[in-house]
């Protein structure tokens, strides 16, 4: 077990989005543009890291029976910090992500990592795992955001890349488009991984 291995697994082999299918709600809801996807990914990564460190440090203090409420309180605290800091320093992005920042609390990815990794391992492995998962989640969200933004608005990160000839496919930035894009991207990844199919499970 090396720190690098714990970090790298989150990027692809155990990517929280493409392989573990965790955190689908924010994934689908806020990825209508690349910037939104990136911001949401970073906010989630911050909570993942903070929650992972604290929960890992507290693992010997917290009685087993009340561990879930304790983890949730710690996570909710970090989410509130992220929420207020974003509102203060990045108000534009904060407005766009809206309700989905508080919902990071119930992102199964975060509680899942705290429960299954951070509290089973020493804190430096927890940090490495949280960073890997955070980066993996962020790139997945940004990637999906880029695809939907190109089709929906003809731009990437707000910069127009397709000319006037392009009629935006509005469907791509609507809710329906989120499901369709995600389904198609997953299918393509399945082909790339030569047919190994994954099953949607959250818990």
């Amino acid at each position: 077990m090396s720190l690098w291995k714990e970090f790298a697994k989150g990027l692809w082999d155990e990517n929280p989005v493409w392989v573990l299918l965790l955190g689908m709600c924010p994934l689908l809801a806020v990825t209508n543009t690349a910037v939104n996807g990136l911001a949401m990914g970073l906010a989630t990564a911050f909570v993942l890291l903070g929650g992972g460190i604290v929960n890992s440090l507290l693992k010997n203090v917290i009685p087993h029976k009340v561990r879930i409420p304790c983890y949730i309180v710690v996570i909710a605290t970090f989410v509130t910090i992220a929420d207020y800091v974003m509102a203060a320093y990045f108000p534009e992005v904060h407005k766009l992500l809206g309700l989905f920042i508080p919902l990071i609390v119930v992102n199964c990815l975060i509680l899942g990592r705290s429960e299954s990794f951070a509290t089973q391992n020493p804190v430096h492995y927890a940090i490495s795992d949280a960073l890997g998962m955070g980066v993996g989640f962020t790139w997945a969200l940004t990637f999906l955001g880029i695809i939907r933004e190109i089709f929906g608005f003809g731009s990437i990160f707000g910069v127009q890349v397709l000319g006037d000839w392009f009629t935006p496919w509005i469907i791509a930035v609507l809710p329906a488009g989120a499901f369709l894009t995600m389904g198609i991207v997953l299918a393509i990844f399945n082909v790339l991984k030569s047919g190994s199919t994954s099953e949607a499970e959250c818990h």
Binding site: A178, G183, A187, N190, G195
Partner: peptide, 21 residues
């Protein structure tokens, strides 16, 4: 085969979302 499981489920969900629109 590549669409089996989650991808197909998501695509159906997309169509349902369109209907609900």
């Amino acid at each position: 085969e590549p669409l089996q499981g989650a991808p197909m489920t998501l695509i159906i969900a997309g169509m349902m979302a369109m209907a609900f629109m």
